[in-house]
Amino acid sequence: MSRRDHPTIVVGVDGSWQAERALEWAAEDARRRGADLRIVTAVRAPVSPATSAAFTAGNVLDAAREAAQVAVDAAVERASELAPASRVSGEVRAGSAAAVLQQESHYADLLVTGSRGHGSLAGLVLGSVSVAVATSARCPVVVVRPDRRPEHAGDDLTPFSWATAGRVVVGIDGSEGAARALAFAADHAARARLGLTIVSAQPAPAPRSRWLDPSESGTLTTLALDCEAVTRPAAALARMAHPRLDVDVQVVQDGAGGCLVSASHQAALVVLGNRGRPSLTGRLLGSVSRTVLCAAASPVVVVH
């Protein structure tokens, strides 16, 4: 449900080419959703009193604000071309990049940021900022990679990654966060006319000896049934919400982070919840989410 009368997507820009990719992604999603698009950048004065005084005296901060406004105006013009039916607005805000985006997330339906920026005073899509915002925002956050280059992925590409080519990939573990991630992923896949792949991690128990442990088969069966109990209802819910949606399920043996990163080289989007169950399968959305954020080749959504 929208937090305003109309769905609103917020995207952070700073004039860098990485931010341009984030802007393009946000504008395309706004076009599909029929959403408003709000473009923001941040300008913060230096924290050192001496440097701050120099900035004020030399009107450097004013110049930085003017430069930021130029970047925002250009972004508004570009976004209006990409999403002509959307209401597009822009604003230069005072404050740190992370604080500005976190504040914006309270009123947005979706927040979009680049994976990194150029680190200038007006920078809003720094690597550390994107991770911080993805962790603490109050709405889903999309971190957009500037260049996927799957042909350079090398050993990262696996049969699993090719099986998810051009699809929306969502990691689930049966938690409430995973349920929200599934709903977001299914909605996005349906709007973008893409297939949906649901991924669940099945951790393999560590071998106790070189010989087969009689209890091992029972453990594996329990783990498989646990994954099936998660993935089967998830697939049914996605198909119920979107009857024409192409849905498939992939159960991976441990290494969920690596599998999702591998899938990202061919996937259109990877979706994760911000946290999962405090269990073995919960690893898919715990430390794994940070791994995917830092290493994925495709855009990644963290759903809160």
Rank of each mutant, 00 (worst) to 15 (best):
S2A: 13
S2T: 14
R4I: 09
D14H: 03
S16L: 08
W17D: 14
E20P: 03
R21S: 12
E24N: 10
A27H: 09
D29I: 11
A35Q: 02
L37E: 01
L37R: 02
T41Y: 06
V43D: 08
T51E: 05
T51L: 06
T56N: 05
D62V: 04
D62R: 01
A63K: 07
A63P: 05
R65M: 10
E66W: 08
A67Y: 10
V70Y: 14
V72R: 07
V76E: 09
S80K: 14
S80R: 15
E81W: 15
P84Y: 15
G90V: 15
R93K: 09
A94S: 15
A94E: 13
S96K: 12
A98I: 06
V100L: 15
V100T: 15
S105C: 03
S105D: 07
Y107E: 05
Y107K: 14
A108F: 10
A108E: 10
G114I: 04
G114Y: 00
S115Q: 11
R116F: 12
G123L: 01
V125Y: 03
V129I: 07
S130H: 02
A134N: 00
C139S: 02
P140E: 00
V143C: 01
V144K: 00
A153Y: 03
L157T: 02
P159L: 04
W162D: 09
W162P: 05
W162C: 08
V168I: 02
V170H: 04
E176F: 14
L182N: 01
D187T: 08
H188G: 06
A189H: 11
G195I: 11
G195W: 06
I198R: 08
S200W: 06
A206R: 15
R208A: 15
R210G: 07
E216A: 08
T221R: 11
L225P: 00
A229D: 04
V230M: 04
T231K: 03
R232N: 01
A234D: 01
A236P: 00
A238M: 05
M240K: 15
A241G: 01
L245F: 00
D246G: 03
D246A: 13
D248A: 05
V251M: 10
G257D: 09
A263E: 09
H265E: 11
A267E: 09
V270C: 03
L272E: 11
N274K: 05
L280A: 12
T281K: 15
R283K: 11
G286W: 02
S287V: 04
S289Y: 08
S289M: 13
V292D: 06
A295S: 09
P299R: 11
V302L: 10
V303S: 07
